[in-house]
Write a protein that binds this DNA or RNA. Structure first.
Length: 152
DNA sequence: GCCAACGTTGGC
DNA sequence: GCCAACGTTGGC
């Protein structure tokens, strides 16, 4: 089992939206590295930190878990979708995704400055300068540390 | 709103 | 295959 982190802008799709929906299809990822993690490495049941990017401050808002095997992102075939990819066909799809299910919402977000200030999180991909990957692996130690921070 | 970091595209 | 131009992400 591996641990993960996914990013979403809270005003686009937040942990509260996931709590309401129960589970969701993580569509629209159009970065090959992020796709590869979902397609090749994620397993149902893997725990996932849910990060709100672009907040003031940004921070980790809760926990989800991988809730499906990978499958083709249907939005790539839909000309009406923002995520339509004209170079992608059902016979040769480019983009795969997984579903995520709600696990918990933290009482308060763990803010990015707190993560940055924590020496035990050194090396976390999220904290790397210039890191933009929206789906990324997290070590179990880092995952547990974020949970500990969330529980104060 | 600014800008650094990064990924992708396309000309050559 | 190189690399400049461009678009996007995301913190500040």
């Amino acid at each position: 089992m591996r641990c993960w982190l996914i990013k979403s802008e809270a005003d686009v799709y937040s942990i509260d939206d996931l709590a309401r929906d129960g589970r969701t299809m993580w569509d629209g990822v159009r970065n090959y590295q992020a796709r590869n993690w979902m397609r090749d490495e994620m397993k149902p049941g893997d725990p996932v930190l849910f990060y709100h990017s672009n907040g003031d401050p940004p921070g980790v808002a809760g926990v989800a878990r991988v809730a499906s095997a990978p499958y083709d992102d249907p939005t790539q075939f839909d000309p009406a979708s923002l995520y339509h990819d004209p170079k992608s066909t059902p016979a040769a799809p480019r983009w795969q995704l997984v579903d995520f299910a709600f696990v918990e919402r933290f009482p308060a977000e763990v803010p990015l400055p707190l993560l940055k200030a924590d020496p035990s999180l050194d090396g976390m991909e999220l904290l790397r300068k210039g890191s933009r990957l929206s789906v990324q692996p997290v070590t179990e130690a880092h995952f547990q540390r974020v949970l500990a921070l969330a529980r104060g």
